[in-house]
């Protein structure tokens, strides 16, 4: 059974702690989202898993093998895409992929089939024999994804694979990740986009400030942190700068409101309980206050609230 495990994994850059004793064990064929805001420590974690950087303490294991000590063995069954690598501009995608295929020991008889399948998977057939040098960032990222899938590894590490892609590219990549799931693999994909994780993953590990906040199935995380499901929050936007003092007391007096906090000068978040009835009352009250309300956006899901709640607490 494929597995990855971080044991007391820490990384310091000088005196700054980017990763703080992370403990996380993921086992079995599933897709796990590694969710956290920018700077949370996602890339740092994945770089340690691929031996691109050394941990300051602790260790990372793939299939029970410590990566830093036995890199070749540990990564033999693991394909990874970390950040956005560049490919030699003079090579074509076919050549770059065949370099990876050879290095990873894809059997000669299978090589060209796997390369063309991988290129097809990322929809780059037309470009297979053009030099990478003139490709856009999104096109290169597709080739990088193809490179990670090429050797048909049982563990795939993806670090924000949709960054740099246009909306259509993003949804295509999510589709690719979803299709990989059917092939009994362990996929560990980092993202700062909640909807991306809830779209494709079965489980979620949330991280912020280098600390693991929670690791569980999507359903459990949602129910564990959002009470009976009638809690919610809305983000409001106004035309004029918000006067926090006045608003805070006024809004807080609306029945059902749990908290009011300013996001910036013209935006604020209101948390409430009591379901849609409360939500309606709040909207009516805000309009009556004539604070210049121009937007009223309920958070899309309980999971989003959980995410926002969790990362707020670690600030």
């Amino acid at each position: 059974m494929p597995s990855i495990e971080a044991v007391n994994l820490s990384k310091k850059y000088g005196s700054f702690t980017a990763l703080d004793s992370l403990n996380l064990k993921i086992e079995g064929a599933k897709c796990v989202g590694f969710l956290g805001p920018n700077g949370a420590g996602k890339t740092t974690t994945l770089k340690i898993f691929t031996d691109m950087i050394r941990p300051s303490a602790g260790h990372a294991m793939i299939n029970g093998i410590t990566v830093h000590e036995h890199k070749r063995k540990a990564l033999a069954h693991c394909g990874a895409l970390i950040e956005t690598p560049e490919i030699y501009p003079s090579l074509t995608p076919s050549e770059a992929l065949s370099m990876i295929a050879e290095l990873r020991g894809v059997p000669h008889s299978d090589r060209s089939r796997r390369i063309s399948e991988a290129i097809e998977e990322v929809k780059m057939e037309e470009w297979a024999d053009k030099k990478v040098g003139k490709f856009s960032k999104g096109m290169k990222q597709r080739i990088n994804i193809a490179a990670a899938l090429l050797s048909e590894p049982d563990i795939i590490l993806l670090d924000e694979p949709t960054t740099g892609l246009d909306p259509r590219g993003m949804s295509e990549v999510r589709e690719i990740v979803r299709s990989l799931k059917q092939k009994s693999r362990l996929i560990f994909m980092s993202s700062h986009l909640l909807n991306e994780v809830s779209d494709v993953c079965d489980e979620v590990a949330m991280i912020d400030h280098g600390k693991l906040l929670v690791y569980d199935t999507l359903a459990n995380v949602t129910s564990k942190f959002s009470g009976d499901g009638s809690d919610g929050s809305v983000e409001i936007g106004t035309l004029r700068p918000l006067d926090e003092e006045i608003l805070k007391s006024n809004v807080a007096s609306i029945p059902g409101v749990l908290s009011f906090e300013r996001i910036d000068v013209k935006n604020a978040r209101v948390r409430f309980s009591g379901g849609p009835e409360s939500q309606e009352r709040i909207l009516v009250a805000l309009v009556t206050m004539k604070i210049g309300l121009i937007s009223f956006r309920p958070s899309s899901s309980a999971l989003e609230d959980t995410y926002l709640n969790l990362i707020k607490d670690t600030l």
């Binding site: 691929t50 490919i87 990088n144």
Partner: peptide
């Protein structure tokens, strides 16, 4: 970065 993440 294209190569180092591989078993090499």
């Amino acid at each position: 970065y294209f190569l180092v993440g591989n078993p090499i």
